[in-house]
Structure formats: structure tokens, C-alpha cells
Amino acid sequence: MTMTLTINGAEHRVDAEPDTPLLYVLRDDLGLNGAKYGCGLGQCGACTVHVDGRPVFSCLTPVAAVQGRRVTTVEGLGSPGNLGPLQQAFEQEQAAQCGYCIAGMIMRAQALLDRGGPISDADIRNHMQTNLCRCGTHMRILRAVRRAVDATGARTSSLEAKP
């Protein structure tokens, strides 16, 4: 079945079964590497993309469900040679070990930045809770997100807020 998808602002026609998870279409049909298969169960966030500006697990989003909706992947935020602001923050903090989780982390964090309003360190932790990292890169990921939040002037406290 042929479907029209809007990915990173561009329209793509893909020929896929309507039940195919968006993840496989992004990766196998459109050659986009950012979203990763980690569990296929909505448990790890490696596959996170935005649909209509909200972070979702692309592994559990049938492609039929996103026709006519806006899909953004990490490729939409910048390219390896021209990193976007949040990606730059990750680069500056060297926030990756194996890096397999990182594209999903960036998409998750971008949703927080997009939400606007003041963002505390506790907000960052709570928000990132959805995504798993096995290498233990958490401290750097938090620093990178904090750096990006600071750059937008949205951070509320400079300490790790703990009640």
C-alpha cells in the first residue's frame, strides 16, 4: 500500500503494509538511521521520534497512524556536519559512549525544550526517565540537556534540585 508521510518537513511516498511500525519504514525504506531498534516494546526509547511535536516510540507506531501527521527524527535537528543546538550540547559534553541510545535521548530531550517554560534539573530527570542507557552515560546526558536548556535561558535552578 502506498502512503504519503511527512518526515522532517519533506513528503515521502512509501510502499509498505499499513501495520508496519514507523521505525522500520524510517530505517529500511527511507534510510534514516537515527531511530534505533532497542526493544520494539516501548520500553527503552531508542526509537524515539516526534509525531506532531510529541515524543513517541516509533517501534509501536504503525505507519498508517502517522499519515497526514508531522514526523520529526533526529536527522531533522541537524546533520553530523552541521549539528543542531541540542546535538551540539551533546557534542560539547561528549555525551555518548556506545551512543546507541543517544538519538532517542536527543529526541526525548528536544520535546522538553520545545515544551517551553521554566525547566528545573528535576524536570530533566523526570522527563528523561522514559529512556534507557546501558553504558551509564546518564550524567553526561543530563549535563548536555542542562547545557541546552541554559542556552535557551529556561532553567530554573543551577543545583540538582532535590526536595
Binding site: 499499513p18 501495520d19 508496519t20 516494546l41 509501536l60 504503525p62 498508517a64 497512524a65
Partner: peptide, 13 residues
């Protein structure tokens, strides 16, 4: 439609 959506969103579990 529900069947296709279920197959892609729910059937994994």
C-alpha cells in the same frame, strides 16, 4: 483499520 493499528502497535506484546 483497528486490525492494522493493533498489528503494528499492540501485537508486539
Amino acid at each position: 483499520n483497528g486490525a492494522a493499528l493493533f498489528a503494528g502497535a499492540c501485537a508486539g506484546c
